[in-house]
């Protein structure tokens, strides 16, 4: 196994699942809150409902971490790897189309 999932990755997975579960409801509330044709009281209520969602139900909590090591910084989003794992894998030739630059 390349890595035992660390707590931050587990937390991120939890956030991703919860975001997915609550996404439709959240979208509906956002649509009501941003709808200028509805009475302001209704819009305000919808906005209050949006505040009731937990931290893990908001998509901004989700962070792309390294899929190999779980590192949170220096991620190349195209491969989902941190810079060091990207280098290792690229040098091993595991990333199709990635070659070391020489000139």
């Amino acid at each position: 196994m390349p890595f035992g999932k660390n707590a931050r990755v587990l937390r991120d997975i939890k956030a991703r699942v919860e975001v997915q579960d609550s996404e439709v409801l959240r979208r509906a509330y956002i649509a009501v809150a941003r709808n200028e044709t509805l009475p302001s009281q209704v819009r305000y209520q919808a906005q209050l409902q949006l505040n009731n969602f937990t931290k893990y139900q908001r998509p901004t909590t989700v962070k792309n971490r390294c899929t190999e090591t779980g590192r949170g910084r220096g991620i190349l989003s195209k491969w989902g790897l941190c810079r060091y794992q990207f280098r290792l894998k690229a040098l091993k030739g595991e990333l199709p189309g990635v070659v070391k630059a020489t000139w």
Binding site: I13, Q20, E23, R27, P59
Partner: peptide, 15 residues
Amino acid sequence: YLRARLRGPSMVQYY
């Protein structure tokens, strides 16, 4: 907000 695609399904598949 209703027209935009749902982001959850692709988010879950990241790892």
